[in-house]
Design a protein around this nucleic acid. Structure first.
Lengths: 341, 341
DNA sequence: CCTTGCTCCGCAAACGTTTGCGGAAGCAAG
DNA sequence: CTTGCTTCCGCAAACGTTTGCGGAGCAAGG
């Protein structure tokens, strides 16, 4: 347990006052060039490392930002975590990663903890039940940007996927291939993404003049079990759909299994399109066509926006917070094929 | 930007000194029961939250622990991150997640940053090139536990997978099914895990009295590309192996694709066994047999060990650090089948 | 020689806690 | 009434920085 070298030590070694040492190391030209250089040298010689706690206490800024997501297994969250942490680091910030399991309770204590740590900013995928806490943070001068999901109860900067367009594009793609009965496995309708993807699907149908058939959609959690259940339900119909549109990577696992169970082969017997791109989809045979929700771009933008507001010229929290949408992109691979109408 | 409520404020409101307020809220019975209760009440009424920076400055402890991994896409790291963060949180610690991309350079700055943040402890999957930095940390009283990989250059508490046994068990399983030519796709031989898995494979062969054939093993990074290359190489032989043992989840993606390319079906034409269990393997058809390296248990144990050393009764850094091994487990599913010898 | 202005640096006060030390009660015993 | 002990609390110092303010030194201008 040896003792850390403090600013006093380097000041003493250089025979200057602590304040001069501080200023010299800060380097804003508040000291002469010579002492600046000398102190830099002595500091590194002694292996001086500033105490971020003391500094934070004084300057009211830790270079910490909270990053809270539901889990790390979901691909979107995974890339969110990776990208955001990388971008933050490049700007000298550290990420405090927290996982809420989509549980408002845990989210609440997480937010409290992060405020206690005096984070400079927060990137969060909100459950939507703790808007008040977030609003307080923002009001106290800590920028908050929501991502992936919106918190409907409060006005905050938010970056989202273009789910309506993505689902629309995907569905239209299938329609253009001649499919008329398209099974949709989609997220819970309590979430924005669930609702928006369904609405995109409906709009595409509508534009093609095809009546909406509610029995063709199966809503549930983003889990393999949901995919399996949906797949079974849709396959047990007399007029089996000729194409399936799966909610995300995880539910697609269930769908693929459901198809395998019945020896239905993709794309010969049925077409399969998934939301959310993951490496596995590209490597798989047949490679799965997807509409990529743009997780990467979302993460980049979220980091950008927060970083922007973290910079000195802190734009005051605009009266009405901006909302950004990341375009979705259809990636055609081998899992969809045309059928005669 | 409203002002935070500080300990002074609650003290003033309660008409006691700051010290009494501090002691009352700490609750160690250093104040009378009545003032303790009164201050607790007033504190929550005012919404007082202690400033962790000030506290940390004084107590030289932050309740932060660094968690550094190579990435989040690899399943082991993903569960490591999830589990560790959950366990830490349960004990009142916060995880500082850092990603090094297996780059010693980045690892070095990461470690520096974490020491600057005065983390109380560190869980790290080391690259092996920064042992000195870690040793300094440990010597300065900050417990460090390594996980997944060992840093050979320095003595630190380490929790590892039982790779030799795992590879041995997997190989023996295939041998017991009658396989004689078993292709092995394995990690780079510069890493312990790569070497250990190969040695387990060799030992199983040896015990079965089968000569080791170096041309049956393909070493490379844990990536789909490696799996694909290895698969192709092994399949292009005249005496094609009747079973494949893949290094991990990611390389298995490549292997599966290589097999699909040649219309070789698992398990009818070839048996496939993978290292490292992920949900996808169980959902896939045929479900892939694996030897589970025990990522979950590893994470739990690593968290346990660190937490243990973080407790007040700080065991002094044992002269020679302990090394823990997590048992591997063979999970039989549908991708391996017996062959006539 | 005095004033003015500029450059560089030191003094000391903060930031919000925790904690050693000592003092003020209260009470019982002598 | 004094003594001694216990219980509770306040004073003030400390943790390691940053920063406003002012002072010393020096050069130039009047």
């Amino acid at each position: 347990m040896q003792t850390q070298v403090t600013l006093r030590d380097v000041a003493r070694a250089a025979k200057v006052s602590v304040s001069t040492a501080s200023r010299a190391l800060a380097g804003g030209g508040l000291t002469s060039k010579s002492t600046e250089a000398r102190l830099q040298r002595i500091a590194t010689e002694l292996g001086y490392r500033p105490n971020t706690l003391a500094r934070g206490l004084k300057t009211r800024t830790t270079r910490l930002v909270g990053l809270v997501v539901h889990n790390l297994t979901n691909a979107s969250f995974r890339v969110l975590a990776e990208v955001v942490q990388r971008r933050l680091r490049a700007e000298g910030y550290q990420a405090l990663l927290c996982i809420t399991a989509d549980d408002p309770e845990q989210e609440a204590v997480t937010i409290e903890t992060l405020t206690d740590q005096r984070v400079d900013g927060l990137i969060i995928c909100p459950t939507g039940r703790n808007g008040a806490l977030l609003a307080v943070l923002e009001a106290n001068g800590t920028p908050v940007t929501c991502v992936v999901r919106r918190d409907e109860t409060v006005e905050l900067e938010t970056v989202l996927a273009a789910d309506p367009e993505g689902a629309f594009a995907g569905t239209r793609h299938l329609l253009e291939l001649g499919h008329r009965r398209i099974g949709l496995i989609v997220g819970r309708q309590e979430t924005t993404s669930g609702r928006e993807r369904l609405s995109g699907y409906r709009r595409a149908l509508e534009e093609a003049g095809i009546p909406f058939d509610a029995s063709l959609v199966h809503a549930g959690r983003y889990e393999p079990e949901t995919g399996l259940a949906g797949c079974r339900q849709l396959l047990d119909r007399d007029d089996r759909p000729s194409a399936l549109f799966a909610a995300n990577h995880e539910s697609s696992l269930g769908v693929l299994r459901g198809l395998a169970e019945r020896n239905i082969v993709v794309p010969d017997d049925i077409s399969l399109l998934c939301y959310e791109d993951v490496p596995g989809f590209a490597w798989q045979r047949p490679a799965i066509s997807v509409v990529d929700s743009g997780a990467n771009a979302m993460a980049e933008l979220a980091a950008d926006r927060l970083l922007q507001r973290l910079r000195p010229g802190a734009a005051p929290p605009a009266a009405t917070a901006r909302e950004y949408r990341i375009g979705a992109r259809l990636i055609q691979r081998q899992s969809c094929r045309p059928v005669a109408p």
